[in-house]
């Protein structure tokens, strides 16, 4: 048996998400190869080769792959799948974008956002915003799987797989990259942050979000998250959204500030180790899952907490 793992990377560096997918692939079993498709992505491929348990790294390098568009990735991956029993990708926006295309071309049903591998046909995944856990058995010969990063440990390093360049169609493809606006921040990324401070609608403006949430995050060395309401209102950028339809996180410490605790928000953070809630409504649902709660006005409590830490 062999598994093809799609690497998540920035060409220059490998993203941690990849190591979690390798762990899930190891639980599935068989030889593990990693595909790095990018432009000038040798550095990412070399990093992938150091993950323990990897047999080979396949490097598809070319300008058409710089931004990992779904149509270009499909052109590389589908032919490769003749040699593999399974395709595993991270359940990131990049993985979610391309994987169903691969599944459709292989005529198999994808297993999305898995949190457990039971055996080579059977997987666990949350449904209904994490309010139910589905154990599901696939009758398809080949498996196409996206992996929820918070459910798997990072694979160890210390491997020394070979890196092999592979032929990759040069395009043109039916979509083209135009531009991007990436959030710049020195704070830890949400997916890998050990601590996260999140703000909700109660912050009431972008200025107050920055004035109250960011200093606390800095004091804690934390990443910054937000509820959908805070993002919709423009208090925080879209990539801060934690939840069913945003990012799923599981840090050691999650501080929810002025967030009510709708099921869609809980879906993205309820596996955090320690949860703190600050909310003026003692009935807010967030308190039902918080380890420690303070009932009161965030505009008083947060500055005091920031100062005393």
């Amino acid at each position: 048996m062999a598994v093809l793992v799609l690497a998540e990377h920035s060409n220059a560096a490998l993203n941690d998400a990849t190591t979690k997918v390798v762990s899930a692939a190891a639980a599935f079993g068989g030889d593990i190869d990693i595909l790095v498709a990018g432009s000038n992505a040798k550095a990412a491929a070399d990093a992938a080769a150091q993950i323990a348990g990897v047999r080979r790294v396949l490097l598809a390098d070319g300008p058409a792959y710089e931004h990992a568009t779904a149509e270009a990735l499909e052109a590389v991956i589908v032919p490769l799948m003749a040699n593999y029993d399974a395709f595993f990708a991270p359940a990131t926006t990049a993985g979610k974008n391309v994987s169903p295309r691969i599944a459709a071309k292989l005529d198999v049903m994808q297993l999305s956002d898995i949190t457990g591998v039971i055996d080579k046909d059977t997987f666990e995944r949350p449904i209904y915003a994490g309010n139910a856990i589905l154990t599901v058995k696939s009758s398809d010969k080949k498996k196409v799987v996206t992996v929820r990063g918070t459910a798997f440990q990072a694979a160890a390093s210390g491997g020394s797989a070979s890196v092999e360049a592979i032929e990759a169609p040069a395009g043109p493809f039916k979509s083209a990259f135009v531009g991007e606006e990436l959030s710049k921040s020195d704070r830890p990324e949400l997916a890998s942050a050990k601590r996260i401070v999140s703000g909700g609608r109660a912050l009431a403006s972008a200025e107050q979000f920055q004035k109250y949430i960011l200093p606390l995050a800095d004091k804690l060395g934390a990443g910054v998250g937000a509820s959908r309401a805070a993002v919709d209102a423009g208090y925080a950028p879209n990539d801060y959204q934690v939840g069913q339809t945003g990012k799923v996180v599981a840090p050691e410490l999650y501080v929810a500030i002025g967030i009510s605790g709708a099921i869609q928000h809980l879906a993205g953070m309820k596996d955090s180790k320690v949860i703190v809630a600050i909310n003026k409504d003692e009935e807010a649902p967030i308190f039902a899952i918080a380890d420690y709660g303070i009932v009161g006005d965030l505009f008083k409590i947060v500055p005091e907490l920031t100062e005393k830490l």
């Binding site: 931004h67 135009v178 990539d239």
Partner: peptide, 14 residues
Amino acid sequence: TREVDGGLQTISLD
């Protein structure tokens, strides 16, 4: 324009 993990990305489709 797409909501991606790092922010926003714009692509052009045929």
